[in-house]
């Protein structure tokens, strides 16, 4: 008899609890049912529209073409070195042509076709380390275009951009800096962050220009919000920039 009384008491207590908290219990039940229903509705896998085969083929093609690009640039560089040696021989053996060879060498240096070294700065540019999922908290190609233009305006003599993995491109006569979805192309060479912008020129002037928060407001606003990493690398006093290896075909322009 006592057990039966106890069960009746529990039952009464439970009933009382349920009645008193009916709304709350309904709310929990409703939400749980809603979540379960949503998961059920979203559990159907979509039919494959783009088979993985084409993705793999595209991936392979990009890798192959990237390797080919690097190989072609190396071949061009090697052939240039051979041409330089031949020109040197001409300079030594044929003194009447020495002046012409010197002019060509000087012009090549002016247009970025020779590696350069000297006093300069390196500028670090990278995506935010705080907001990794924010598509705006990244170093954009437009940031680099603006910075390159700004550095020329402030008297830079030569500029290069280096990405992760040591891939470096000199800014030259036909340089374009573009963004394809989430990668940056400099001279049509794919680069990923972090980026280092190397600048040959007056160190004090360049540092002052890069640290000018007013002139680079849009960049520094994002730095303040933690959406970008951007600063001069203090430890660097001199820079080594490679020669320009982008396309340099002149087919339509003739001297006037």
């Amino acid at each position: 008899m006592p057990a039966k009384n106890c069960q009746m008491q529990i039952s009464e207590k439970t009933k009382s609890f349920l009645v008193k908290n009916a709304s709350f219990i309904l709310a929990i039940v409703g939400i749980v049912l809603g979540v379960v229903l949503s998961l059920k509705l979203n559990s159907n896998l979509p039919r494959i529209i783009s088979p993985t085969v084409s993705f793999v083929a595209l991936n392979d093609m990009e890798s192959k073409l990237t390797e080919e690009q690097a190989a072609l640039k190396k071949q061009i560089s090697d052939t240039d070195s051979q041409i330089d040696k031949l020109n040197e021989q001409v300079r030594q053996k044929q003194s009447d042509l020495k002046g012409l060879v010197d002019e060509v060498e000087s012009l090549k240096s002016q247009v970025g076709l020779t590696a350069v070294s000297g006093k300069g700065i390196e500028v670090f540019l990278n995506d935010s380390d705080q907001y990794r999922d924010n598509p705006n908290a990244i170093a954009h190609a437009s940031d680099m275009r603006d910075l390159v233009n700004y550095l020329w305006f402030n008297g830079a003599q030569a500029i290069s951009i280096e990405g992760a993995g040591g891939i470096e491109e000199r800014i030259g006569p036909t340089t374009s800096i573009d963004c394809i979805v989430n990668t940056v192309l400099v001279n049509n060479t794919k680069m990923v962050p972090p980026f280092t912008i190397k600048v040959l020129g007056d160190r004090e002037k360049m540092i002052s220009a890069i640290n000018d928060r007013k002139a680079l407001k849009s960049i520094y606003d994002r730095v303040e919000r933690g959406e970008l990493q951007f600063h001069v690398i203090d430890s660097v006093q001199s820079v080594n920039l490679p020669k320009f290896t982008g396309n340099l075909i002149i087919q339509n322009a003739k001297i006037y």
Partner: peptide, 10 residues
């Protein structure tokens, strides 16, 4: 109420 909370959960 149940329906509203079900919708909310959804």
């Amino acid at each position: 109420s149940l329906f509203v909370f079900l919708l909310l959960g959804l």
